[in-house]
Design a protein around this nucleic acid. Structure first.
Length: 480
RNA sequence: CGGGGCGUAGCGCAGCCUGGUAGCGCACCUGCCUUGGGCGCAGGGGGUCGUAGGUUCAAAUCCUAUCGCCCCGACCA
């Protein structure tokens, strides 16, 4: 396969991202066509691993995967006023089918609250039917004005969970639990630290009482919303007539939640860890965790080296790159670009010494390892990489987070950073709810990302949000 | 929809200002040689220069129109 050259890192992060993702095409993450994305071999394999991690966690609490239609009757969207208002501008609408104009157009789902609400109304009659816990893995379409590879594509793959409960407390607990699931996967699987928080009313999901999100910081200091969980209250229950009879015999509307995470996570993964050489994947999301590259000079060396390579590979669960007609150098480069965490080099010199040279992708460090200890060493190195990568990202988050106590301070920090390197910082603004805040923040091209649930970045380490916070501490940042 | 840029070989680009036989790197094919970080050398195949008009003896190059793509902004996950 062809390997196109990768350009050196530029101060312009967008350019770098493009270089890694677009130019790094041969590392097979994705390619884009008309705002839509083809996710290629290596990229899709990462998504599959991520899917499994999420799905396993959903299912531990009794959620079922279902599938709902792609096409939603337009009238469904109109049943919830705020929802339709929020989504209308970005809907793709099917007006013609079967060679004639449709009486009622369909919209291509931008999300499935409405059609699921429709079915919840049919399926839920009694408190015994609750909670109803469903999830679907699907593609959705949102006609955004501008697309960015992985981060915002016209069509994207995601998971959307939808639940119905008999009371608000239980629904809120579900919303918070799913937020925790996302944070767990982000931090412990993706090695991407996040801040859990509540969205402002201006930024919440259209039709929700309250939205929660996890916010991650990319290498340039930009924020990335990496997962959302919504408390829908009874808004959709009322809009779709989802009623149940309680134990006391009374009719009540259900309390619903919805939560989702998308292929955007892969973009976040790339922008959190990758470097100028290509992808860097945390071991838990590496489709191939280790590759053995055999090195031999003469025909006489070939057999013993290959034999040992396969034996070692079997031992550690690695793949052997035994392609002929490729030099070892070309092979190292190949796997490096694909983000394979560990490459094992095995040549005649190692064979004689009873060692293997282990190179890790994150730090680039090389070390000889005794063949007898190779399996546990690789295991240990993979574990260590997982935490090293998380710690490095967390360190970056801390270093690029600054405190501010007034809107003036916020503004001066944001503008200063803008001028300096075109990058970003998270500003933890500690201040009373200032009516000028939204406006002033916006002029700095930043947004209020969230009101954090647990404030661990100012050293106080205490929860500041229980219900509506009195003392607002906001995360303000430029975002993708 | 505003502001910028680009369409020339599979990919990345030069050539255009100043019109005159279509170029370079990577990839591909053949041979020899090599293999501890993108092997090397030699030879070779592949392009109606986005499209349509115009100017000219002659257009990738100048003019006009048109289509497409990318980046920045507004929208947003």
């Amino acid at each position: 396969m062809a390997e196109s050259p990768i350009t050196p890192r530029n101060q312009d992060f967008a350019t770098w991202y493009q270089d890694v993702v677009l130019q790094g095409d041969m590392a097979e993450p994705a390619e884009i066509v008309k705002g839509c994305m083809v996710i290629k071999a290596n990229g899709y394999a990462v998504w599959e691993l991520l899917q499994r991690e999420l799905d396993d966690r959903f299912k531990t609490t009794g959620h079922q995967n279902l599938y709902f239609p792609l096409l939603i009757p337009e009238s469904f969207l109109h049943k919830e006023a705020e929802h339709v208002e929020g989504f209308s501008p970005e809907l793709a609408v099917v007006t013609q089918a079967g060679g004639k104009k449709l009486d009622e157009p369909y919209v291509i789902r931008p999300t499935s609250e409405t059609i699921i609400g429709h079915f919840f109304a049919k399926w839920i009659k009694s408190w015994r039917d609750l909670p109803m816990l469903v999830n679907q893995w699907a593609n959705v379409v949102r006609w955004e004005l501008r697309t960015r590879m992985f981060l915002r594509t016209t069509e994207f793959l995601w998971q959307e969970g939808h639940t119905a409960h008999s009371n608000h407390d239980e629904a809120v607990a579900e919303v918070r639990r799913m937020l925790d699931v996302y944070a767990d996967v982000a931090e412990n699987v993706m090695a991407m630290p996040v801040i859990k928080g509540v969205k402002t009313q201006a930024e919440k999901f259209a039709g929700a009482l309250q939205s929660y999100s996890i916010e991650a910081m990319m290498q340039n200091g930009f924020a990335l919303q990496a997962g959302t969980s919504h408390d829908l209250g009874q808004n959709f229950g009322k809009a779709f007539g989802v009623q149940f009879q309680s134990q006391a015999g009374q009719l009540d509307y259900v309390w619903q939640t919805s939560w989702g995470a998308s292929t955007r996570l892969i973009g976040g993964l790339i922008m959190t860890h990758s470097d100028d050489k290509g992808l860097v994947l945390p071991p838990k999301l590496a489709p191939i965790k280790a590759v053995v590259v055999p090195i031999y000079r003469k025909d006489a060396e070939r057999e013993p080296v290959l034999e040992a390579a396969h034996r070692i590979a079997k031992d550690v669960g690695a793949k052997v790159d035994d392609r002929e007609g490729q030099t070892p150098g070309a092979k190292f480069f190949h796997w490096e670009r694909r983000g394979v965490p560990v490459v094992l080099e095995l040549g005649p010199r190692d064979l004689a010494a009873g060692t293997v040279v282990l190179k890790r992708r994150d730090t680039g460090a090389k070390q000889p390892v005794s063949v007898t200890a190779i399996a546990e060493t690789v295991r240990a190195v993979l574990d260590e990489m997982q935490s090293t990568m998380f710690n490095a990202a967390k360190q970056r988050l801390k270093e690029n987070t600054v405190l501010a106590n007034s809107i003036d301070e916020v503004e001066s920090i944001l503008n200063d950073v803008t001028a300096e390197k075109g990058g970003g910082k998270f500003v933890m603004a500690h201040m009373k709810d200032d009516p000028r805040c939204d406006q002033r923040v916006k002029t700095s091209k930043a947004t209020i990302r969230c009101i954090p649930l647990v404030d661990e970045y100012d050293g106080a380490g205490k929860c500041i949000v229980t219900g509506e916070p009195v003392d607002r501490r906001l995360v303000i940042a430029k975002a993708y």
